[in-house]
């Protein structure tokens, strides 16, 4: 497979996943806000500032906007073309990458990606957003899942497909760190306590945004605690949006690409994924919280960035 094709399929996978995760992140924030009555400017900053911090987008936002309002943040993360990570931009890039490897992916995949792009381009997206933002973000999420499902069901599971998977899982692992981290950034209103009603309802929103509510409640028999949720989203081996699950799959797919036995490594990306994988395999809530959750998540994000670079250098830019 051409290196360029590898690069494009990888980024196609990443951007589709990123569009979905941004939709999830915004939706959860809108949901959390519903629990609060007061809507002063300070509250808006308090609730929407963290979205930008967790996406590392505060600087560009401030350059484009004078006022800090919920509507401005939603627009910035959803539609802003000058924001390279907005949902709209992600879909654009996903399609550009898909177009560049149109000969490698199935027609069904291409048509679904193109349909999502047309949805944004012809104004339907903006209209749906105004009508009901929750339904709109759901729609984006489902569209991404449809694309991923069609990818699994219609594309040959050979090298190019593995690159799509690598992109998807590295992006999803990264996103889950950011969604979890969002909870860290959101300050509790004064008078509210850690483990109190508001705190717990925020943690439930975090779970919902990762589609993890039902799975979590089954495991914990309905007992939502901050530590429980964090452990679940970081360490659970079988939940498909937990960081550990994503890194496991990433490590697997890396080994499939180079045909190296799992547990061994022949190149740098495999070494790094193996390292992160074993860290997560042997992590406990105590070990995470002794670092501090935020710092721990930061560390994972850094490792994912190094992984991405090593992967790119090994297969695409040698």
């Amino acid at each position: 497979m051409l290196s360029r094709v590898g690069d494009s399929t990888y980024w196609m996978g990443r951007y589709i996943e990123r569009a979905e995760n941004n939709a999830r992140l915004l939706d959860v924030n809108v949901q959390m806000l519903l629990d609060f009555e007061s809507r002063g400017v300070e509250t808006e900053r308090q609730f929407w500032g963290p979205i930008l911090s967790t996406l590392e987008d505060t600087e560009l936002f401030n350059r484009l906007h004078e006022e800090f309002t919920a509507a401005a943040v939603l627009d910035y993360v959803t539609f802003e073309r000058r924001n390279p990570n907005s949902i709209s931009s992600c879909i654009n890039y996903a399609r550009e990458n898909a177009r560049a490897v149109r000969d490698q992916i199935s027609s069904e995949m291409w048509e679904q990606i193109n349909a999502l792009w047309l949805f944004f381009r012809d104004g339907s997206a903006a209209r749906d957003f105004r009508a009901n933002s929750h339904e709109f973000y759901d729609k984006v999420t489902y569209a991404s899942q449809l694309i991923q499902g069609v990818t699994d069901a219609t594309m040959t599971h050979s090298e190019a497909w593995r690159f799509v998977q690598a992109g998807k899982f590295i992006e999803r692992a990264d996103s889950t760190t950011r969604i979890l981290d969002l909870k860290y950034h959101i300050l509790l209103p004064s008078g509210e306590q850690v483990g109190g009603n508001v705190d717990i309802s925020q943690w439930m929103s975090v779970l919902r945004s990762c589609s993890g509510m039902e799975a979590y409640l089954k495991i914990r028999q309905g007992n939502v605690t901050p530590w429980g949720v964090a452990e679940f989203l970081v360490c659970h081996a079988e939940f498909p949006r937990s960081i550990r699950f994503c890194v496991d799959r990433l490590d697997e797919v890396f080994h499939l690409i180079s045909a190296t036995e799992e547990g061994r490594f022949r190149n740098e990306p495999e070494r790094l994924s193996g390292l992160l994988r074993s860290q997560l395999d042997y992590a406990t809530p105590d070990s995470i919280f002794s670092h501090g959750l935020h710092e721990y998540l930061d560390g994972v994000q850094e490792q994912l960035i190094r992984l991405d670079l090593a992967f790119h250098e090994t297969y695409c830019a040698y």
């Binding site: 497979m1 051409l2 290196s3 360029r4 590898g6 000969d103 090298e159 690409i257 297969y315 695409c316």
Partner: peptide
């Protein structure tokens, strides 16, 4: 399908850069 950047020439032979 390749672009110019996917190809290179060594010893008067053409190659494509693959993974």
């Amino acid at each position: 399908i390749v672009t110019g950047a996917d190809l290179l020439v060594q010893n008067d032979r053409v190659f494509m850069k693959t993974t």
